[in-house]
Computed example of a mutant assay.
Amino acid sequence: MTTLQVKRRQIGALDAHNNPVVTYADPVDWEVWDIAPGASAEPWRTNRDLSLILWTIYAPNDDSLPGELDRVVLDDVDYDVEGRAGDWTRGRWYQPTAGAVVELKRAEG
């Protein structure tokens, strides 16, 4: 098992335009099974230097999974959670040890 950290999204006070201010709670530990690199996507547009850093996280399917609006800390860098976690415990036969898959993404450039 490897330990990452999850920062849960919170809605704070209203700003000067009456919009809620988005903040993140203090990080909490998240035990995961494995971390795999995702594909690095380089857009093919002219005058654009963008790189997407992607990670795939394999973890137990429990209440510690991050939500799609949370952030995950990996190697002291914050990554956005890309969509909802993929639940591999469902299927023809219940398989609680199958776990979940969480995709992380960060754009640079």
Rank of each mutant, 00 (worst) to 15 (best):
G12S: 13
A59Q: 01
W30T: 04
V72K: 00
T23V: 13
K7G: 06
T2C: 04
P27S: 05
N18M: 14
V22P: 02
G91T: 02
L74E: 02
N19H: 13
P27Y: 07
E108C: 05
G109C: 11
W30I: 07
T89N: 02
D76C: 07
A100Q: 02
M1F: 00
Y79T: 06
G83R: 07
L69V: 07
Y94R: 14
E103R: 09
I57C: 07
P37W: 09
N19Y: 14
Q10E: 15
P66M: 03
D87R: 00
R45H: 10
D63K: 11
V77G: 03
R9M: 15
E68R: 13
R9G: 01
R106D: 11
T89W: 08
A39S: 13
G91I: 06
L4D: 00
A25D: 13
V22G: 01
R92H: 14
S51V: 15
T97V: 10
Q5M: 02
D80R: 07
W44Q: 15
A107N: 03
T46L: 13
A25K: 05
W93A: 01
L65E: 01
G91D: 03
W44S: 14
T56M: 06
V77H: 03
Y58M: 07
A59L: 03
L104R: 05
A16N: 15
N19I: 03
S40D: 11
E82G: 05
G99V: 12
D70K: 03
D80W: 12
A13N: 15
G83A: 02
S64K: 07
T46A: 15
S64E: 05
L74D: 00
S40N: 10
L74Y: 07
A98P: 10
P96H: 07
V102C: 01
D75E: 12
P43V: 08
V81Y: 00
P43M: 12
S64Q: 08
W30E: 08
E82M: 12
D15K: 06
E31Y: 05
A36I: 08
L4R: 04
E68Q: 11
